[in-house]
Design a protein around this nucleic acid. Structure first.
Lengths: 193, 193
DNA sequence: CAACTATGAAACAAGTTGTCCCACAGTATC
DNA sequence: GATACTGTGGGACAACTTGTTTCATAGTTG
């Protein structure tokens, strides 16, 4: 796990078929939704043999999960230590992700599948944790510097900051711009500080 | 459309098979997700014949849509003309809906399908409009009575009030209680008024 | 009671799913 | 560069699913 020697060399043929397959999965997922992702469809689109797919991913759920796990945008801003600016930077990063159709589709699929498949529930939990960590850290350091009350509920702050953004994109299906993010952050700070 | 005479008497057999089928759809939807809702599965569970199902709903999407449209909880509070109390009442009604597993499942399915099927997109738009109307009306009358600034952006207020609730249930998958709703409303009023 | 109409069962062709087997080609080792 | 190895994709397969049609039967209406 640490030494270079213990890293098993993977047959390039495996890498090749796996990446080809996962790319095809994402394309299908994006074009027709997760129900269209079948071994047969992926084989047809990727050129990878049907039997090869069954070998690597006996269950379609695994295929989907691998494709999604390797795709979700994970970029986040880097807090500079200034509460307002850091929040604006991070929320605008999230804004950009929420306006990428492919990313949105993945979020929707995960939300729906997590309800049914434990494997997706775990994936969603991880993505939420990772997706909200930066925001949480910004709030925490704001508290540490005394810019926010000592009894600030970090999780609640995250709900108030990210909630409106996700609500607007997922439920209202309306776009929003940087000015919207300004208002969300201003609103939060006006009350909290 | 208006006179009683023009209301076509419907053969009770049709009513019977339709309600039986739609009930089965909801059960399957709840237990296994929308992909499991097929004519065959609904026939098996409801006792309604497969051919009868194809007759009434040639496409499964119609079946799903009818089942969902007839189910979504549409109860809302009745505003009494007191800003804070009305908001608390309405948001707590929504809170209850967001904690009903069947209701949540429907919301998730609609969010996911709306991305792909125009028929679901329309359904979602209607449900959003209806679901947020009461909240919007409370805000509007608050503005009218001068309890909120005249330049209040109603849609933005809705995002701020409902966003955290939906975010918490759909993305975080965490429950929340009446005290949480209190904080959301207090937070909003503290800044807005 | 007679005319009507929705129903569910059965049979059907067409398509899909998961599995297995095998010739072949790309990869690693001597 | 010959040899053993291992992943690949095609073909064949049975089991199952999907959408249709046909028909005898039973519930509904006047």
């Amino acid at each position: 796990m640490s030494a270079t020697g213990s890293v098993k060399r993977v047959d390039p043929r495996i890498t090749r078929s796996k990446t080809a397959a996962l790319t095809a999965v994402r394309e299908i997922l994006f074009a027709e939704g997760w129900a269209a992702v079948t071994h047969a469809a992926v084989a047809a689109r990727s050129g990878v043999g049907r039997s090869t797919l069954y070998r690597h991913w006996p269950d379609v759920v695994d295929l989907l999960r691998d494709a999604i796990a390797g795709e979700m945008a994970r970029t986040h801003s880097e807090p500079k230590g200034r509460l307002r600016e850091d929040l604006l930077a991070e929320l605008n990063t999230i804004r950009r992700q929420l306006h990428d159709p492919a990313n949105l589709r993945l979020i929707r699929v995960i939300i729906e599948r997590a309800d049914i498949s434990p494997s997706f529930a775990a994936l969603k939990q991880g993505l939420y944790r990772e997706g909200s960590r930066t925001t949480a850290e910004i709030i925490e350091s704001g508290v540490r510097r005394g810019e926010l009350p000592a009894d600030t509920d970090v999780a609640f702050a995250v709900d108030q900051l990210l909630g409106p953004l996700f609500f607007r994109r997922l439920l209202v299906s309306a776009a929003f711009d940087a000015a919207y993010v300004d208002r969300v952050v201003n609103g939060y700070l006006a009350r909290a500080s």
